[in-house]
Structure formats: structure tokens, C-alpha cells
């Protein structure tokens, strides 16, 4: 039962990704051509409300469902890994038209060709793991 809440949250996530066309290759293409506000509105409003939520959590020292204080891990300071890694990610995002979340939602939607993309993503993660110590971070 511990996992039911995560399953249901995932279901809500999957439905909204599909219904707002965030899983659409076309919407990503349109976004990178700056020809629609749709994706910017989604990410922008999520970040504004998300930032508000994070501030409220921090200021009220909100506790999670288990009673432990909610904490945030600051990301490591670096430029190269975020810029280079992010650029590689962006190349794939615009080609596949899907980032990791939508890949899985699309499989559920019935588009099984996304399984090839997911295998590629797992493979990419694996190769990163092998090369990690040789890459600048």
C-alpha cells in the first residue's frame, strides 16, 4: 500500500502529459521554433507555482507524510557538465520529441516504437556510467 500513492501520482502525471500534448513530437518541434506559447506556458506556470511551493515548504518547515522534515539537496557547482550534458540531452529531446517522462507515457498510449527510444536511453545511461570518471564534471 506504501506504493499506491506513487502509482496514483504517476497516473495523474501520465494523463496530464498526454492530455496537454506534452508527449507530442509536434509540440516539441513547435516549441523549439518558438511558434507557440503552449509549452512555455506549461513549464513557466509549473516553475512559478513550484517555486512558491518550495518557498512555503522551507518557511513553514513542512514535514513529509512520514513526519520527517522536507529537505532539498543543492546541485553541485559546475558549468561544464550541465552545459555539455544539457546540450546532448537537448539534441535527443528535439529528435525523439520526448524526454524521459513522455517516453513512458507514449508507450502506455500504445506507441510501442518508443520502446526502442527507451532502450537507447538506458544504453546511453549505461555508457555514461562507464565513461563517468573520464568526463569533465
Amino acid at each position: 500500500m506504501k506504493y499506491l500513492k506513487f502509482l496514483l501520482t504517476g497516473v495523474v502525471f501520465g494523463i496530464v502529459m498526454a492530455k496537454a500534448e506534452i508527449i507530442s513530437w509536434y509540440r516539441i518541434y513547435e516549441m523549439f521554433r518558438f511558434e507557440s506559447f503552449h509549452m512555455y506556458g506549461i513549464i513557466g506556470s509549473a516553475v512559478i507555482l513550484g517555486a512558491l511551493a518550495v518557498q512555503i515548504i522551507k518557511r513553514t518547515q513542512l514535514k513529509d507524510i512520514e513526519g520527517a522534515q522536507i529537505t532539498f539537496n543543492p546541485k553541485n557547482r559546475s558549468i561544464i557538465r550541465y552545459l555539455v550534458g544539457g546540450t546532448i540531452f537537448g539534441l535527443g529531446w528535439a529528435l525523439a520529441g520526448a524526454c524521459p517522462g513522455p517516453m513512458f507515457v507514449l508507450v502506455g498510449y500504445g506507441y510501442l516504437s518508443l520502446l526502442i527510444v527507451i532502450v537507447g536511453a538506458v544504453l546511453g545511461t549505461f555508457i555514461y556510467g562507464l565513461l563517468r570518471n573520464k568526463l569533465p564534471h
Binding site: 546541485k75 553541485n76 557538465r81 550541465y82 555539455v84 550534458g85 544539457g86 546540450t87 546532448i88 540531452f89 537537448g90 539534441l91 535527443g92 529531446w93 529528435l95 525523439a96 520526448a98 524526454c99 524521459p100 517522462g101 517516453m103 516504437s113 526502442i116 527510444v117 527507451i118 532502450v119 537507447g120 536511453a121 538506458v122 544504453l123 546511453g124 545511461t125 549505461f126 555508457i127 555514461y128 556510467g129 568526463l135
Partner: peptide, 18 residues
């Protein structure tokens, strides 16, 4: 398709998130 996934998978871990 495989290459697009590879770029996403490699890039996201290098960047530490998607």
C-alpha cells in the same frame, strides 16, 4: 530512434537530470 534515446539517456545523466 535508438540514437535519439541514447542522446537523451547519456545527456541527462551527464547533466544530472532531465
Amino acid at each position: 530512434l535508438l540514437g535519439a534515446g541514447f542522446l537523451v539517456g547519456f545527456g541527462t545523466r551527464y547533466a544530472g537530470g532531465c
